[in-house]
Design a binder for these strands. Structure first.
Length: 470
DNA sequence: ATGTAC
């Protein structure tokens, strides 16, 4: 196997079935296990691939590694539910506040915020919202534009997002899995489990980015709310259903891959079209879910700090999807599975509000560590403007529970000190598999991305409160 | 990831 280097932190590996680009610093690159490269090689067996890459947070996933960007031409390419991932539309959202760090340093105030947020945003399995005036079928068809006006505080909530409506052919809704509607309405505006979270953080603006930060309405010491959630059972049901559909149709075509969990079909096939169209319904659910979580968080902040507190959206964007994008003079299907789009200043794909500056790329850390607000660079073109989606898991949930003690977890949350990061759980045991020790060192990941000239850090977000589901 | 489960 031959490995070429293209400048800092950019490797190109010549695998048996095609080339894999890897963006990582030396330390991170050397830490990858062979399994992730074998997995890439299986993915490269899919014909006519235009680009396949790993960001530094890459780790083994089902069929395809988390941290993959994979591109095909819309004309003769492939679509893969395995390279979208099971949590379709999973993504990040940040809201700013006028508050300063010192306003919530008091633990009593922070505990009041946790209690208030939990009143509006269900965080436990099987706890639901009850927005009687929301029609869930309008939401999955029209995204944010399918929500009643009363849940849209102002126009800005519709413009500072990757897309307010993901357009698709609604006729395909006839092919929805039968059980998908069952819990959908009650799950809109709920957090979900696993790595999903709501964090209250304060900002440290990067020295060289004061001007851009000010343009985005950010200031040093500012309190912001970061939300990580997805399309809940709606996307999971679609993912499951189409895994079955694709496996059957691949069998009937006689298509073989060493990994039975790696499923794909031509974009132009009936199965490919059905999946692509319905995937967009999950993206509409996901962005609306994060919107409604944010709406609940805003209500909670208003209960604590007064009814006129404004919480503008900074941005909402996803890291699990396949989008049709125009690159290299043709329409391409860009899969991002645990990879974040980071468009540079002036790029035509930017939403109008961020055309001039490039949009905020929102990168979560692990619990108890920093998160980052970044901005893409022109050089990102070499990776179709994809950067990391977070720290990336370093070990499985099971292995984490065996390795890390609750005490070690508590220490990393600074429990008992003035700077303790407060959590909504009585015991850390419940969420031990989400401790920072389960993840790679996020600073190494960010260093890899910055060093590869894919993006720059605008602000570091330091956690003060972490709200997790189960 | 998912009121998980060929």
């Amino acid at each position: 196997m031959k490995t070429m280097t293209h400048g800092n932190n950019h490797y190109e590996m010549n695998l048996a079935h095609g080339n894999l680009h890897v963006f990582a610093n030396t330390e991170v690159f050397q830490s990858f296990e062979q399994k992730v490269f074998d997995m890439a090689d299986n993915n490269l067996r899919i014909p006519r691939n235009k680009h396949m890459s790993y960001t530094p947070d890459a780790h083994v996933g089902i069929g395809t590694c988390i941290g993959t960007t994979a591109v095909w031409s819309m004309k003769d390419g492939f679509v893969s539910p395995s390279i979208v991932g099971v949590d379709i539309g999973c993504g990040m959202r940040v809201h700013t506040t006028p508050l300063h760090k010192t306003d919530i340093q008091d633990k009593g105030v922070r505990r009041a915020l946790i209690r208030a947020i939990e009143q509006y945003v269900p965080t436990n399995e099987r706890t639901n919202t009850n927005y009687a005036d929301i029609d869930i079928m309008q939401v999955v068809q029209l995204g944010l534009k399918g929500l009643p006006d009363k849940y849209v505080p102002n126009e800005q909530w519709l413009t500072h997002v990757e897309e307010s409506t993901f357009k698709f052919d609604h006729a395909y809704l006839e092919n929805l899995p039968p059980k998908i509607r069952k819990y959908a309405h009650g799950q809109l505006g709920t957090l979900g489990g696993g790595n999903h979270f709501i964090e209250i953080q304060y900002l440290e603006i990067a020295e060289k980015q004061q001007e851009l930060a000010a343009k985005w309405g950010l200031f040093d010491g500012q309190i912001v709310v970061m939300i990580h959630s997805g399309s809940r059972a709606w996307g999971a049901n679609l993912g499951q259903e189409f895994t079955k559909v694709f496996r059957e149709v691949m069998q009937s075509w006689g298509v073989e891959n060493p990994d039975r969990n790696l499923l794909y079909a031509p974009i132009g096939s009936q199965e490919g079209q059905t999946y692509l169209n319905l995937m967009y319904s999950a993206l509409n659910f996901a962005v609306s879910n994060r919107h409604m979580i944010a709406y609940g968080v805003r209500e909670a902040f208003r209960d604590v700090f007064g009814g006129d507190l404004e919480m503008p959206v900074l941005y909402d964007l996803m890291h699990n999807y396949a989008l049709k994008e125009f690159h290299r003079n043709e329409p391409m299907l860009v899969h991002r599975k645990g990879a974040t789009r980071a468009l540079p200043p002036g790029h035509f794909l930017n939403t109008a509000a961020y055309k001039e500056t490039g949009h905020p790329a929102l990168i979560p850390g692990s619990m108890g560590t920093s998160s980052y607000i970044m901005v893409g660079r022109d050089e990102g073109v070499k990776n179709f403007y994809s950067i990391c989606h977070g720290a990336g898991r370093a070990r499985s949930r099971k292995a984490t529970k065996e390795l890390v003690t609750v005490d070690q977890f508590a220490q990393s949350m600074k429990v008992g000190t003035e700077d303790e990061i407060l959590v909504n759980h009585r015991s850390l045991q419940t969420i031990l598999d989400e401790c920072p020790q389960a993840y790679k060192d996020v600073d190494q990941i960010i260093d890899s991305v910055v060093g590869a000239a894919l993006a720059d850090v605008v602000a570091t977000c330091k956690p003060m409160v972490a709200i997790k589901g189960v």
